[in-house]
């Protein structure tokens, strides 16, 4: 297998791949769809930030975050 060869002035150069193409996907996404998985990640992150915000305020006398 050979790496890309060509002039550095030609921006449209077609370069041969330096590696074999990856295998396709066969597994089912978590929670049935990737959109639902991403929504869960964002929701969990926001929940953790909210909980830490509460912790910041709850145990420090006289503080509002």
């Amino acid at each position: 297998m050979t790496a890309g060869v060509g002039s550095c002035h030609d921006a449209r150069l077609v370069i041969p791949p330096s590696a074999t193409p990856p295998a396709g996907d066969s597994e089912r996404p978590p929670l049935g769809s990737w959109a639902r998985t991403y929504a869960l990640v964002c929701a969990c992150a926001m929940l953790v930030i909210a909980l830490l915000w509460w912790l910041s305020i709850a145990f420090e006398p006289g503080r509002t975050a």
Binding site: G4, G6, S7, C8, A11, L13, I15, P17, S18, A19, T20, P21, P22, W34, Y38, V41, C42
Partner: peptide, 29 residues
């Protein structure tokens, strides 16, 4: 999440060995 939506397909579509190899395909050496 942003990486999973946009970057992962970008890298997996073309069989590159480094992130910067992709930039030559898209832009220039």
């Amino acid at each position: 999440v942003v990486l999973c939506v946009w970057f992962v397909p970008m890298y997996r579509k073309s069989p590159v060995l480094t992130a910067y190899e992709f930039l030559e395909r898209r832009f220039s050496p």
